[in-house]
Design a binder for these strands. Structure first.
Lengths: 252, 252
DNA sequence: CAAATAACGCGCAAAAACGAACATTTTTTT
DNA sequence: AAAAAAATGTTCGTTTTTGCGCGTTATTTG
């Protein structure tokens, strides 16, 4: 039986039993443990299951808005980027976390920080960080965007203007060679600009796929970013721009 | 079976039996007592269980459990109250939904309304209503209160002041015979007062258990409420007050 | 109240599970 | 039918989990 046939059955078993074990599936399908592990890893990456040592369980029932979010959240490169970004954030400071799946990953990495004040316009991040009792979570107001749980519009901007953050973690939809950060949604651009204006230190998180994307609205220039966290090498032009603008680039 | 696979089952047993013992789990899983102790310690650290000598019990006072229990409490009557309240809310209008388990039930009943603008300071309500694509959901800002997903504080009040609602649905922690609406949290009182001031028509939802509770902070008088939705008959004194104040009382 | 007993947590070594890299087989494409 | 791509199996170094010994702490019992 090939992979595509095993996966649905693994899910079926998981739904019935609440969990699956590597050993159990090896017996069931008569394949090597490594094969089962690969299946489980892929099912976990796509959000169907949650991987644990020895097997997998159904994803925890703490409900987020979308299931597609969780899929993106599990992508390894985002987690790696998030980890090195979180390492630059000290305890006992104020942080803004913007909309974006990578910033959600950063939120997850902040689950064991202490004494943070986190302000966010992403409802998923609020739910994630509510698990850390040592973090004070503030949500900006705004219109709820269903696609990603973001809060956008004038209300969000207004709220942000009342703060001054030690650190801001932002992302973008696309990145141009000349160092411009671009976004799909014009409403969100206003929010991002306000965030940058009200932060001591701006962190940008974006995986390599953003280098190849196009987006219409300009958020800012890389020159306004203090640190850029990514996974793939920048284009020479962009690297040169960061160099001259004094933007540090850190690779996961 | 490995650790993370055991944990969900330990919780399941704990939910069913009310408690678990180290010895019992050793027999059940066939592992060393030391291993079970580790599991229980970790489950206790993450707040899922409360550790006691010889085993563990369900946490009696944790916020999460407390809330989900409160939500389950009187669930049937809450749904009934919510249904008659939702019936008074027309399509194509603006509604504020306040913090509270009964108002959450109202949100669920609004899942099939059309063309609403719903503003809320309850993150759970935002998640519930995001399922209805024909509702525009606006979230107020504020400090996230873990116990119930409420957004409180000055930011919330500020946001509300920028709107004028056709209808507001509020609840309260307790109700006095003289027609006063009371609450436990002074921060929330400010929010509720602002809501009342910015709404054309105020709906109060509260099940009968509120008649017997006491709470320290005064939100408002029943005279400021236009309709009161509940399940049990009011005390004669309270009924008389509503009558004279012109507050309609509707029973589920 | 004090001794006896049971339960507990910590450090450490063994065992199990893991992921990455590479070889091999199967399937698909040209 | 050959080449390319995908899936599977194998090996091996690394990480996680587990069980045991032992001193400490909590509960029970006389």
């Amino acid at each position: 039986m090939s992979q595509s046939l095993r996966k649905p059955e693994i899910i079926k078993i998981a739904r019935r039993e609440g969990r699956v074990t590597v050993d159990g599936l090896v017996d069931h399908f008569g394949v090597a443990p490594q094969t089962i592990r690969r299946d489980l890893t892929e099912l976990a990456d796509s959000g169907k299951l949650e991987r644990v040592h020895g097997g997998a369980v159904l994803p925890s029932t703490t409900t987020n808005i979308g299931y597609s979010e969780r899929r993106a959240l599990n992508q390894a490169s985002k987690v790696d980027i998030a980890r090195i970004c979180a390492r630059q954030i000290p305890n006992d400071c104020s942080v803004f976390l913007n909309i974006g799946t990578t910033t959600e990953a950063v939120a997850t990495e902040l689950l064991h920080h202490q004494g943070l004040l986190v302000v966010t316009n992403n409802i998923n991040i609020a739910v994630i960080l509510s698990q850390n009792p040592s973090v004070e979570v503030v949500v900006t107001g705004g219109n709820l965007r269903r696609s990603d749980g973001g809060l956008v519009g004038d209300l969000a901007t207004q709220t942000i203007r009342q703060f001054q953050f030690d650190h801001a973690v932002i992302s973008c939809s696309a990145l141009r060679d000349n160092g411009d950060l671009m976004d799909f949604d014009i409403q969100e651009v206003g929010v991002s600009k306000t965030i940058i204006a009200h932060s001591e230190e701006v962190f940008l998180v974006a995986d390599g796929s953003k280098f190849e994307r196009k987006a219409p609205a300009r958020i800012a220039s890389m020159a306004e970013v203090d640190m850029f966290f990514t996974d793939l090498p920048l284009s020479p032009a962009c690297a040169a721009f960061c160099e001259s603008a004094g933007t540090k680039v850190l690779y996961a």
